[in-house]
Design a protein around this nucleic acid. Structure first.
Lengths: 341, 341
DNA sequence: CTCTATATTATAAACGTTTGTCCTGATTTA
DNA sequence: TAAATCAGGACAAACGTTTATAATATAGAG
């Protein structure tokens, strides 16, 4: 039953050829070393028969690379990142690379541990959406010449390549849209204060607010989670003057928001308007189809991967910082109240 | 800038101790080999200073195991599996194992390739939701004594451990619920014909149909996808006598279903009732909160992991087949039409 | 028939660890 | 005082590959 795992030496013995010959035909170096057709066929035949597949661990050790890219996401439970994980792993597979998906749980310590693991495992590159602005562990990676690029979140103060949405523009436009629809009392529910997307979304919002003379607004919340969206909404609904519109800074926040609104029997958009960052297939079929600011996920992944491979292949690399414009998907959750009050 | 990756030999030289001593203190075998406190501290200090982290590739090669478990999902874009991926990777991390998530894209060839890769990479175990009933590649894994357990989908004809929902019971109960609510014309939209969950859901449905004398039903569809749900719904809505209820066999199918229903301006449940397999956070907030048959995801993951580790640790293992009862979450998408026609 | 090319395959070092075994002093036992 | 024990650590083989280099055989040239 239990067949010993067969290795290249077994093939060598079974064929009467040396291991180097086996290795060479298996690695397509047959002509380079002028190995006869006959020998090649013999090798291939035996390999086939014995179902030999080279031990990648040994190969990796010898070659020093692993054809593996690590993808660190803050949370796989966030559909935005699940989506990214799916896209990235499919893309990388096309390039014949394996993806190692790591969930840092929005936790710096876990992230550090993971980075350690990943470096120890000799990954060829790292794609990361960092959970904080702390960079010591990241610097360590870079020092070792391990290619690393940030996606979605990045380090504002470091020269580390990244690709992200233009969150400033997204928030700016979203806010503009709200204001154009007559909203004068707007509440933002933000996510992790430490993340760059949040920082820029906040700035974009504030810029538009300032520009249009909006005074009556609040920015609250502290986590990209359902719970945060829920409790913050609950809180603001009990304040003396409720906002006429809520700007949610992520899909999970929006979900919490909707939950709270429903419990309060508030209709969207009749009683209150809602706009959120991040699209999701279900958004269109909610009791009120949700207007959102959609990020160009596929493009972000594609460019991040390209940058990473530029690094891996040591191609001429300009200091890469890319911001992609998100776009508003208009659905039904924002009401025009310009003439209603 | 570019620091050469430091290895155990560097530590040995820097400390004037032999590599075996370094290795031993790092692996907690200090007392076993009676290494003095002083030496231990010295080693630890230098390791700390130089930020040495052992090359896992070499460790793996030497030890023959990788502390890595592969999780093969048919599609990460399916929230059900994304959820599983998240839960499994978090659980495994607690056990100090790394998870290698692989997306087989519902595609047997890809699955085979991946299994090859995974075996070549010396994973310590495989958790798989197979994309077909073909088992040649699986048998090959088992022959090599690589622990493998199926989750969600499995092989009906093989003695391979699995843990899944009791899909028969789920469909049986779901159908019963529909019938109790007066539905006499029911359409099922099924998923992949090759998958066991689909097989049992279909059987459960048919059993209940037979038991209650239901004659007027149809079973259609062939994929666990949004598109399948969409087109099948479109088709059945154009038939001469529309069903009064639709039983969707997965979340993605339901999404397609909802989309088609909306395009036809059909209200749920006033015009047509809908029930689906799989829960999802958004279901509660859809224009009609969707009644569903929820699978015990966390339990499935937990048990699958336990079985896998039983195998890994060669514990006494009874031929393990586990089916967990799903439960109906009652929301608003099924209408009682018992007295309406 | 010897010599040089040329075609083909073998040998062995190296990748970075772990670990069984051996070695050296020092201390204790008898 | 010789033998035995023990503390502390070093050596070197092994894991399964890849690859530079060496080796051998064959054939054609002269």
């Amino acid at each position: 039953m239990s067949v010993k795992k067969i290795n290249i030496k077994d093939i060598s013995e079974a064929s009467g050829l040396s291991v180097s010959t086996i290795s060479r035909v298996l690695n397509g170096k047959a002509k380079q070393y002028r190995i006869s057709k006959k020998t090649q066929e013999k090798v291939l035949k035996i390999v086939e028969e014995l179902k030999y597949v080279p031990n990648q661990v040994a190969v990796n050790l010898k070659r020093g690379n692993t054809r593996t890219i690590a993808l660190i996401v803050p949370s796989l439970n966030n559909p935005f990142f699940a989506n990214i994980a799916s896209v990235v792993s499919l893309e990388l597979r096309k390039l014949d690379y394996t993806t190692l998906i790591s969930d840092s749980n929005e936790n710096l310590e876990m992230e550090k541990e993971e980075i350690n693991q990943l470096v120890a495992r000799n990954v060829d590159g790292i794609l990361i959406s960092p959970s904080s602005q702390e960079t010591e562990h990241i610097d360590w990676v870079v020092e070792q010449n391990i290619p690393l690029v940030c996606y979605d979140r990045f380090f504002s103060k470091k020269h580390i390549p990244y690709v992200a949405s233009d969150n400033y523009a997204g928030a700016y436009e979203g806010t503009k849209y709200l204001i154009e629809n007559g909203h004068k009392r707007i509440a933002c529910i933000q996510g992790s204060l430490l993340s760059t997307p949040n920082e820029f979304r906040k700035k974009g919002f504030e810029a538009m607010a300032k520009e249009s003379g909006l005074k009556d607004y609040m920015i609250t919340g502290s986590e990209f989670s359902v719970r945060n969206g829920y409790t913050e909404t609950l809180l603001m609904l009990q304040a003396h003057n409720k906002p006429t519109a809520i700007f949610s800074f992520s899909n999970n926040i929006a979900l919490g928001c909707i939950k709270a609104l429903k419990e309060f029997n508030l209709r969207v958009p009749e009683d209150i308007s809602l706009i959120t960052f991040d699209d999701h297939p279900y958004l269109e079929y909610l009791s009120t189809p949700l207007t959102c600011i959609a990020q160009p996920v596929e493009e972000i992944c594609a460019i991040a991967i390209r940058h990473l491979f530029d690094l891996i292949n040591k191609r001429e690399i300009i200091y890469q910082k890319v911001q992609l414009k998100p776009h508003i998907i208009h659905r039904k959750s924002v009401r025009n109240i310009a003439f209603h009050e």
